[in-house]
């Protein structure tokens, strides 16, 4: 039996959902589908739902190339597999269709952070990478200028934080950002924006939080 390919128009373009099956077969079914309806697809922005497929950069970038040769822009890959999601993110693709913001009613702290879900990233986030996660984000590595972290909860960076960081993106004012070297281009907690002053001297670990209407950064003091 041929694997199923479902195509649906959505606000952001086309949503293509792939059924179950082996990846090479799914990919060729998809390409056939597109070649059948070249005019329909030309210039389209496509979001691809790959279900449980585990895809690595080689497969995903090859698919993106194949699509771009047909004049189709692949902008998002939706998947239940964390590996595929991470691959998509490193290739600069979106992994969800909507920003979490408008869809959900402002949830209380307890429910959003149920089980304190967190994502751990053990590498340097370079310029152009956007890391979005509804829970906490922990990075072991540097966050370079031009990289962006958007977290529903807290952000912890074991390294230099120099990109843009947004904690409590769904409105949680209790969220904090901490880093060994906290010098982000811009720091946001819930809806509040702070710009870090130019640092002088040696960096020390710091934690930024929302206190009495201000975003403040405190140095971690081992003596206290």
């Amino acid at each position: 039996m041929r694997p199923k390919v479902e195509i649906k128009g959505i606000r952001e373009g086309l949503l293509v959902t792939l059924g179950e099956g082996e990846w090479p077969e799914l990919q060729s079914t998809l390409v056939e589908n597109i070649q059948h309806r070249v005019d329909f697809f030309r210039g389209a922005r496509v979001a691809l739902d790959v279900g449980n497929q585990i895809l690595h950069a080689v497969e995903l970038s090859r698919l993106r190339d194949m699509l771009s040769e047909q004049g189709i822009a692949l902008w998002a890959v939706l998947s239940n597999s964390p590996t595929t999601e991470q691959t998509a993110q490193t290739l600069g693709l979106a992994t969800r269709l909507f920003k979490p913001h408008p869809e959900r009613p402002a949830p209380s702290v307890d429910t959003t952070l149920d089980g304190e879900a967190a994502i751990l990233v053990r590498r340097t986030l370079r310029s152009g990478i956007k890391l979005q996660h509804p829970g906490h984000v922990i990075v072991i590595g540097d966050v370079n200028p031009g990289a962006e972290i958007v977290a529903g909860g807290d952000v912890v960076v074991w390294g230099r934080l120099r990109g843009t960081v947004h904690a409590g993106a769904e409105g949680n004012l209790q969220s904090v950002v901490c880093a060994l070297d906290l010098s982000p281009t811009q720091l946001r907690i819930a809806g509040n924006i702070a710009i870090t002053p130019q640092r002088r001297g040696k960096p020390l670990p710091e934690i930024a939080r929302w206190v009495d209407g201000h975003v403040i950064a405190e140095t971690w003091n081992p003596g206290k």
Binding site: H56, A57, S61, T90, S127, P145, G146
Partner: peptide, 15 residues
């Protein structure tokens, strides 16, 4: 340097 950083990231992503 900013652009070089972006390119290095893309090169890493392409393995």
């Amino acid at each position: 340097v900013r652009d070089a950083d972006r390119v290095i990231g893309l090169v890493e992503a392409e393995e």
